[in-house]
Amino acid sequence: MALPCTGVILAGGLNKRFDGQNKAFIRIGGKRIVDRLLEVYLGLFEQIVLVTNDPAAYMDVDALIVTDHYSVRSSLNGLHAGLFAAAHEHAFFVACDTPFIKVALIQRLLDTVTPKADIVIPSTSAGYEPMFAVYKKTCLPAMVWQLERDLLKIQGLFRKLRVKTVDEAALRREDPELVSFFNVNSPADLVRAEAIHKQNG
Rank of each mutant, 00 (worst) to 15 (best):
F25Q: 07
D68T: 10
L147P: 13
L157V: 01
F182S: 01
N22M: 12
C96R: 05
S71K: 12
D19T: 05
T124M: 02
E174W: 09
Q107L: 12
G156K: 01
N77A: 14
G78F: 03
A170E: 13
Y58Q: 05
P115E: 07
D62Q: 12
H69N: 14
A86V: 02
D118I: 04
H80W: 13
D175E: 09
L64D: 11
L50E: 02
F100E: 01
V113N: 05
F18Q: 03
L14E: 14
Y70K: 01
A95L: 13
T124Y: 02
V51I: 07
I119K: 03
A81W: 08
I9G: 09
F84G: 00
V49R: 00
E148C: 01
Y70W: 12
P187H: 03
A193K: 00
A133M: 04
S186D: 11
W145Q: 09
F18L: 06
D175R: 13
G30W: 11
A85G: 04
T114W: 07
P4Y: 06
P141K: 02
N200T: 15
I33A: 00
R192D: 10
E39L: 02
K31P: 06
K137S: 08
G13E: 06
D175L: 12
D68F: 07
D167H: 10
L178H: 07
D150E: 12
E46K: 08
V94Y: 09
K16E: 15
V179Y: 15
I28E: 07
P187E: 02
V113Q: 02
Q21K: 13
V144D: 14
Y70I: 01
I106T: 04
D167T: 02
I33N: 02
V166H: 12
N22S: 10
I121A: 05
K136N: 09
I119W: 07
P176H: 11
A193D: 04
A91K: 07
R17I: 02
D175M: 12
R108K: 14
I196Q: 08
F93Q: 06
A56M: 10
R162K: 15
M59F: 10
R159N: 15
A142M: 00
S74M: 08
G82H: 00
Q47G: 08
G7C: 09
R32H: 05
K153A: 10
I65H: 09
R17K: 09
P141F: 05
D54H: 10
V179L: 15
L140R: 08
P130S: 04
L14S: 15
S75C: 06
V144I: 11
Q155E: 14
D175N: 10
S71A: 13
A85H: 00
I9W: 07
Q21E: 14
E177P: 00
A56R: 09
R108H: 06
I65L: 13
